[in-house]
Amino acid sequence: DHWHVHIDGERIRLDGASEEFIRTLEELIRRGTDARELKEIIKEYLR
């Protein structure tokens, strides 16, 4: 599956992301997590 998110107007691909990770991201977004912080979390995950 190819997922991607838009954060700060930037399109970030989440290739190979699990549904669990996507749900976690959605939860963080709902909580109002800062965009820079979200991008860091995604970069760490994709390593």
Rank of each mutant, 00 (worst) to 15 (best):
H6E: 15
T24R: 15
E20P: 06
Y45A: 04
R36C: 07
S18Q: 05
R31I: 09
R31W: 07
K39P: 01
S18D: 10
A35T: 10
H2V: 12
R36Y: 13
T33W: 04
H6N: 12
T24W: 09
D34F: 06
Y45T: 03
E27Y: 14
I42C: 02
H6F: 07
L46D: 02
G9C: 04
L25R: 00
R47W: 10
I41T: 06
E20Y: 12
I7D: 01
G9Y: 04
G9H: 05
H6A: 08
G32W: 04
L14Y: 03
L25G: 00
A17Y: 05
F21M: 05
E40F: 12
W3L: 12
K39L: 15
F21I: 05
I7S: 02
L14W: 02
E26G: 07
H4P: 03
R47G: 10
L38Q: 00
E44F: 09
E19T: 14
L25T: 01
R30Y: 09
K43I: 12
F21Q: 02
E37A: 13
D8Y: 02
E20I: 10
G32K: 05
R31F: 09
I22M: 10
T24K: 14
E37D: 09
K43V: 11
Y45M: 04
G16T: 07
R47S: 12
L28M: 12
V5L: 08
I12C: 02
H4L: 08
R13Y: 15
R13L: 12
H4D: 08
E20C: 05
L46S: 04
T24M: 12
E37G: 05
R23W: 08
E37S: 13
A17R: 02
H4I: 13
W3M: 09
Y45D: 00
R11I: 15
W3H: 07
D8E: 11
I22T: 05
D15L: 08
H6S: 11
I29H: 02
H2Y: 11
R30D: 05
R31S: 10
L25S: 00
L14H: 01
E37I: 15
D15K: 11
D1S: 12
A35K: 07
D34L: 12
L38G: 00
A35M: 08
L28H: 06
R11Q: 15
V5A: 07
E10L: 07
I12K: 01
L14E: 00
E10G: 03
W3F: 11
L14K: 01
E37V: 15
